[in-house]
Computed example of a mutant assay.
Amino acid sequence: MTASKANAEPDEAGETPAILYGHRAIAARLGLPVVGVARLDLERRIPFYFDDGCAVASTAALDHWNSMKGAR
Rank of each mutant, 00 (worst) to 15 (best):
residue 14 G to P: 10
residue 64 H to N: 09
residue 19 I to P: 00
residue 38 A to C: 02
residue 55 A to L: 15
residue 12 E to D: 13
residue 4 S to R: 14
residue 45 R to K: 09
residue 6 A to R: 08
residue 60 A to E: 09
residue 54 C to Q: 15
residue 64 H to S: 11
residue 57 A to F: 08
residue 6 A to F: 10
residue 69 K to E: 15
residue 63 D to K: 08
residue 27 A to P: 01
residue 41 D to M: 09
residue 70 G to A: 10
residue 58 S to Q: 09
residue 57 A to P: 01
residue 13 A to R: 13
residue 41 D to F: 05
residue 17 P to S: 07
residue 42 L to M: 04
residue 25 A to Q: 04
residue 24 R to Q: 15
residue 44 R to H: 08
residue 47 P to D: 07
residue 56 V to M: 06
residue 15 E to Y: 08
residue 59 T to D: 01
residue 29 R to S: 06
residue 61 A to R: 13
residue 12 E to L: 13
residue 35 V to W: 11
residue 68 M to I: 11
residue 19 I to N: 04
residue 14 G to E: 13
residue 7 N to H: 13
residue 65 W to R: 08
residue 10 P to C: 12
residue 8 A to Q: 03
residue 44 R to I: 02
residue 16 T to D: 11
residue 56 V to P: 00
residue 67 S to E: 13
residue 54 C to L: 14
residue 35 V to G: 04
residue 36 G to K: 12
residue 36 G to W: 09
residue 49 Y to M: 07
residue 7 N to P: 02
residue 61 A to Q: 10
residue 72 R to I: 06
residue 34 V to F: 00
residue 21 Y to K: 09
residue 31 G to S: 12
residue 39 R to D: 02
residue 18 A to I: 11
residue 68 M to E: 14
residue 23 H to D: 14
residue 52 D to C: 02
residue 46 I to W: 03
residue 3 A to N: 09
residue 54 C to W: 14
residue 10 P to M: 10
residue 63 D to L: 05
residue 28 A to T: 07
residue 3 A to H: 06
residue 51 D to A: 02
residue 51 D to E: 15
residue 69 K to V: 15
residue 32 L to Y: 15
residue 49 Y to L: 11
residue 21 Y to Q: 04
residue 9 E to C: 08
residue 23 H to N: 10
residue 19 I to S: 03
residue 53 G to E: 08
residue 56 V to T: 10
residue 63 D to V: 05
residue 69 K to Q: 15
residue 33 P to N: 14
residue 29 R to V: 03
residue 72 R to P: 03
residue 17 P to R: 10
residue 16 T to N: 14
residue 6 A to T: 06
residue 48 F to M: 12
residue 35 V to C: 06
residue 3 A to D: 08
residue 43 E to Y: 04
residue 56 V to Q: 02
residue 62 L to A: 05
residue 44 R to A: 06
residue 17 P to K: 06
residue 49 Y to A: 04
residue 67 S to V: 03
residue 38 A to I: 13
residue 47 P to V: 11
residue 71 A to T: 06
residue 18 A to Y: 12
residue 66 N to W: 01
residue 53 G to D: 11
residue 37 V to M: 03
residue 39 R to G: 00
residue 59 T to I: 10
residue 59 T to R: 13
residue 54 C to V: 15
residue 15 E to L: 14
residue 34 V to E: 15
residue 66 N to Y: 02
residue 59 T to K: 07
residue 10 P to I: 12
residue 68 M to K: 11
residue 45 R to L: 08
residue 59 T to G: 01
residue 68 M to N: 06
residue 53 G to C: 03
residue 44 R to S: 07
residue 15 E to V: 12
residue 7 N to M: 03
residue 13 A to V: 08
residue 8 A to D: 15
residue 2 T to I: 14
residue 22 G to A: 06
residue 32 L to E: 10
residue 51 D to I: 09
residue 34 V to W: 00
